[in-house]
Design a protein around this nucleic acid. Structure first.
Length: 469
RNA sequence: GGCGACAUAGCCAAGUGGUAAGGCAGAGGACUGCAAAUCCUUUAUUCCCCGGUUCGAAUCCGGGUGUCGCCUCCA
C-alpha cells in the first residue's frame, strides 16, 4: 500500500517515505516568464499536478511550491527586445502562465514565489557559502567553488574531470574551475540590480530555487521535480549550494519527466518548432492535451503532433460519452433493492479502483491507471445495456469516475446542462416525427441539431444528447 | 570522449523471469427505421538483430544495429 517512485539520485525505485509522516514538501521548478510556456513545459506541469493530486488522494498534506523565475539573462534580453521593463515582462507572462495553466486544469501551487521577491534570502545563502569557503568573489561576481564540494556531480553521475574535456563552453578565466557557477552576477549597465555585500548585482539562476525551496519547505524537501534537462546542471548546482550552506540533505526524492519531442524532433528555437500551449488551445480542447500527456508514463520520452492528439481525443471521448450517459441515467434510475447484477457491477467498480490505485502507486503509472478506467467503462456499458437501473449503482459509478478523474484532472467539466428551449422543442418534434414514422423529418431535425453541435443518441432509455467536441 | 534514455501490431502505449493490458484506426457481426453510442468477434505464435543464462525471457547477461538526449543559464 505504499507508493513507489523512481528517484533520479539513486536511479532506483524507492518507497516513498516523507520526512514528516503525513506532510509532503514538494517543489517544482517553474517557468522563466519571458514567453508563453510551451507544450514541453506543459507536460512537466501536468505530470506533477497529477502526482500532487494523487498524494493528496492518498491522504498526504502536500505543500506544493512552484516558482516563477523573473530575473535572468533571457528575461533581460527579451525585455530589451520588447522595449519594456523586466518587471513588466514578468507581469505579462505570469498572467499568461496562470491563464494557460488554468485552462489545462493545472491547479495553482500553494505558493508561487518569485525570485525578485527573495533577494535577501538569496544573499544570506551566498554569505553562508562564502563563510564556509565554498564560494569566492571575483570583481563583483560570486562563484560556487565546485572543487570544494566533493559530492558535486552525484545527481547527474557526472565526473567533473570528464565534464571539462567535453565542455564546449568558453572558459571564463576568472573562475577557479570551469565547473564553477555564478551565485551572484555583477550588474551591467541598465540591468535590474540589488545591493549586496559584493556590490550591486543580481542572483544567478540556480540559487533562487534553493532559496525559495528552503524558505517555504525547510532545509530538506521531500520531492524536488522538474524537466529532464534540469538534472544537470541546475539541480546539481542546487544540491551543491543548499547542502553546502546547511550541511543537511537537501532533497529526499528527485523526479524528472521525460522529453517531449515534436514530430520526433527536439523542440528548439533554432528549428523554430516551439509550440506554445496558447497556440495549441486555439485548435484543441485542453482536456485532450491533458489526456494525451497522461497516456504515457511520465518518464518516457513522448512524441507530439496533432495526429496523435486526434487519437487521444477519440479515446477521451469514449470515457466522456460514458459519463454523459451516467449523468442522464442518474435522473432516470430508480431507488430499489440491489439485485445480483447490481452487486456484481459494484464489485467491479471496486476492483478497477484498486487497479487504478495500484498503477498509481507504482511510480505514478497513469497509462496503466487509464486502462483501468477503460476496462471499467466496458463493464459499465454492459451493465447499462438493459432495463431500469439502480440509482445507488449509477451514483457509485459516477462518483468513482469523478473521484479518480479528479486525480487526473479529467471529466471535471462534464455536467448535465439545460438546453435552450428551442433545442428542446426540436428534439421533441423529432420524437413525434419518429413516432409517426416520418423519418425524413426526423433525420432532417437530427442533421439540423448536429450543425448546432448537438449529437443525438436514441437509447432504450430514451433519447440522449451530448455536445459535439 | 564521459553519462544516459528509448526500440512491443497500421498508429499510440502498459507490461522488468511464468507464457503479450488498454486506447485509436480497420474488418465482420449484434442492436437501430437509418444513424450515433454500445457490445461481441477479429488484427503481435511474438516484443530491433545475434548469441548466452534458465525448466521457462519482451523481461536477466554479453555483443551488435537504429533513434534520441544531456555534458551550453532550452522543461
Amino acid at each position: 500500500m505504499t507508493i513507489k517512485l523512481y528517484n533520479t539520485m539513486t536511479r532506483r525505485m524507492e518507497e516513498f517515505v516523507p520526512l514528516r509522516e503525513y506532510e509532503v514538501g514538494f517543489y517544482v521548478c517553474g517557468p522563466t516568464v519571458y514567453d508563453y510556456f510551451h507544450i514541453g513545459n506543459a507536460r512537466v506541469f501536468i505530470v506533477f499536478d497529477v502526482i500532487r493530486r494523487y498524494l493528496e488522494y492518498r491522504g498526504y498534506e502536500v505543500n506544493y511550491v512552484q516558482n516563477f523565475t523573473d530575473i535572468e539573462d533571457k528575461m533581460i534580453n527579451r525585455a530589451r527586445e520588447m522595449g519594456i521593463t523586466v518587471e513588466e515582462l514578468a507581469e505579462k507572462y505570469i498572467e499568461a502562465y496562470l491563464e494557460d495553466a488554468d485552462a489545462l486544469g493545472i491547479r495553482r501551487a500553494d505558493v508561487h514565489p518569485r525570485a525578485t521577491e527573495h533577494i535577501p534570502e538569496i544573499i544570506k545563502i551566498i554569505q553562508k557559502l562564502m563563510e564556509k569557503g565554498l564560494a569566492y568573489e571575483v570583481e563583483g561576481d560570486v562563484y560556487f567553488d565546485t572543487a570544494s564540494f566533493p559530492e558535486y556531480g552525484r545527481l547527474s553521475y557526472q565526473d567533473t574531470g570528464e565534464l571539462e574535456s567535453g565542455s564546449r563552453v568558453e572558459v571564463d578565466e576568472r573562475k577557479k574551475n570551469p565547473m564553477d557557477f555564478a551565485l551572484w552576477k555583477k550588474a551591467k549597465e541598465g540591468e535590474p540590480s540589488w545591493d549586496s555585500p559584493w556590490g550591486r548585482g543580481r542572483p544567478g539562476w540556480h540559487i533562487e530555487c534553493s532559496a525559495m525551496a528552503m524558505k517555504y519547505l525547510g532545509e530538506t524537501l521531500d520531492i524536488h521535480a522538474g524537466g529532464p534537462d534540469l538534472t544537470f546542471p541546475h539541480h546539481e548546482n542546487e544540491i551543491a549550494q543548499s547542502e553546502g550552506a546547511t550541511g543537511k540533505r537537501f532533497v529526499r526524492y528527485w523526479m524528472h519527466v521525460g522529453y517531449l519531442n515534436i514530430d520526433k524532433q527536439k523542440m528548439s528555437k533554432s528549428l523554430g518548432n516551439i509550440l506554445t500551449v496558447r497556440e495549441i488551445h486555439k485548435k484543441i480542447d485542453p482536456q485532450v492535451v491533458r489526456f494525451f500527456m497522461l497516456s504515457a508514463h511520465y518518464r518516457s520520452p513522448i512524441n507530439f503532433n496533432f495526429e496523435l492528439l486526434d487519437q487521444a481525443k477519440s479515446g477521451l471521448e469514449r470515457l466522456n460519452t460514458l459519463i454523459y450517459a451516467l449523468l442522464d441515467l442518474k435522473e432516470k434510475a430508480q431507488e430499489k433493492p440491489l439485485e445480483d447484477k447490481d452487486r456484481d457491477i459494484m464489485e467491479k467498480v471496486e476492483k478497477y479502483r484498486n487497479k487504478f490505485e495500484e498503477s498509481m502507486d507504482d511510480d505514478f503509472n497513469t497509462a496503466d491507471a487509464l486502462a483501468a478506467l477503460f476496462e471499467l467503462a466496458r463493464e459499465t456499458n454492459i451493465y447499462l445495456k438493459d432495463g431500469m437501473h439502480n440509482l445507488q449503482v449509477i451514483e457509485k459509478i459516477l462518483n468513482t469516475y469523478r473521484e479518480l478523474g479528479d486525480i487526473l484532472g479529467l471529466f471535471t467539466n462534464l455536467e448535465k446542462e439545460e438546453l435552450d428551449t428551442e433545442i428542446e422543442e426540436l428534439i421533441q418534434k423529432r420524437q413525434e416525427a419518429r413516432k409517426a414514422k416520418d423519418f425524413a423529418t426526423a433525420d432532417s431535425i437530427r442533421d439540423q441539431l448536429l450543425e448546432r453541435g448537438i449529437i443525438l443518441e436514441d437509447t432504450p432509455q430514451g433519447v440522449r444528447w451530448k455536445r459535439k467536441s
